Amino acid sequence: MFENYTYLDNASITRLDERVFEEMKPYFFDIYAIPTSESGYSMGVEAREVLEKSRETIAEKLNAQSSELIFTSGYTESSNIALKGVALALEKKKGNHIIVSKIEDYSVLNTAKALEKQGFKVTYLEVDQYGLVDSDVLNEQITSETILVSIQHANQEIGTLQDIKALGEVCKDNGVLFHTDVTHTFTRTPLDLEKTSVDLATISAHTIHGPAGIGALYISKGTPITKWMDGGFQESNRRAGLENIPGAVGFARASQLVTPEENQKMEKMRNHLIERILSEVPKSILNGHDVKRVPQNANITFEYVEGESITLHLDMRGFAVSTGSACFSRSLDPSHVILGIGGDHERAHGSVRFTLGRFTTPEQIDAACDAVTTVVENLRKISPLGNQ
């Protein structure tokens, strides 16, 4: 059914790489025991060994210690553990103030709102027109009660890259913990946690052609965090629940398969897409920073047309993209990211996100540009605002 379909929504989820699947298969059918200690039975011991080897592989990509990484069910759980775990650990010891940016992904934003309902004070930092957080503004908002700052490395919608090194230094200088969601930058953009003042970092496999349902949380040594989910004593007693061995193996293999050459190829195609659309489609606007952005993301607003209409018409032509239109999402609100960078409802409703992956080709990008040009032109002809 989707043989000739062009998928350009890789920020939502990526297609599993066949090499990843082959690496995972034995841990579904041959070595399926739960991880045990060295004194346990042999299948469980082997499961433990491959789990720890996978942890080491992923930690190396972050230049972190394997003991600082715990596996989770994905980026949502990782960010929940980070924010709620720190909140529980420091509320009575230091304070109850948390800072997040206004354009965080919902895994952080809604976790912060949940903590706010429990009595925590939350500051939602403004960003500039590109989605960047000003380190001086962050510094001004930190108080003696601040316990945690959470600012993503790259935005999920517009792809803007934050200077997390500078933001982390502000937090370090103020004695505040710093969490960052690197879901959209892990292996895509250089990241060395040893050289940044990051205390907690969220990562996930689903954006790098790994399996869905597996993620991890980096917790730097000595970071105060209270176990948030009750149950067993897995993951060094920091996260309860049965370990996902096939998922961990797939995550590790996926992290190994991403190369600088692949990222450069995607960036070249992404730039070509942006250049063609902005030059060929009048009244189109690039959302986010034109340089400081992840290599796989392009988010463009088309004036006088709904992003939902563009998405549905592109789908009929065999192209999958996403939109910030409220009608297309499960929420009744338009993109909080576009609104957060100063856009109005019309700009949010007309935004379309194109995100590339490993299997995207230059031919697909050109075909997508052709389709976008035609679709937008046709929709504007029937729009009451299209001829302005």
Rank of each mutant, 00 (worst) to 15 (best):
D128L: 06
Q129D: 13
Q129R: 14
Y130Q: 08
G131V: 03
V133M: 03
V133Q: 03
D134F: 04
D134A: 10
S135C: 07
D136E: 13
L138I: 06
E140C: 04
Q141C: 09
T143N: 11
E145D: 15
E145L: 10
V149H: 01
S150C: 13
I151S: 00
H153R: 13
Q156H: 15
T160H: 00
L161I: 13
Q162Y: 05
Q162F: 05
I164N: 00
K165N: 08
K165E: 11
V170G: 01
K172A: 11
K172Q: 09
D173M: 12
V176P: 06
L177H: 05
L177W: 07
H179W: 04
V182I: 15
H184S: 07
H184C: 07
T185C: 12
T187P: 01
R188W: 13
T189R: 11
T189I: 15
T189L: 10
T189P: 04
P190H: 13
D192N: 15
D192Q: 10
L193W: 02
S197I: 06
S197E: 14
V198S: 01
V198G: 00
D199S: 08
L200Q: 02
T202P: 02
I208T: 05
H209A: 11
G210D: 03
P211E: 04
G215W: 09
A216T: 08
L217G: 05
L217Q: 04
S220Q: 14
S220L: 04
G222C: 12
G222V: 14
G222Q: 11
T223E: 09
P224K: 07
I225Q: 08
D230A: 15
G231F: 12
G232H: 08
F233G: 11
Q234V: 08
R238D: 03
R239V: 03
R239Y: 10
A240R: 03
G241W: 12
G241C: 11
G241R: 09
L242T: 14
N244L: 05
G247V: 10
G247A: 09
A248L: 05
G250Q: 06
F251H: 04
F251W: 03
A252H: 09
A252N: 07
R253G: 00
A254D: 02
A254M: 04
A254F: 05
S255H: 09
Q256F: 00
V258E: 07
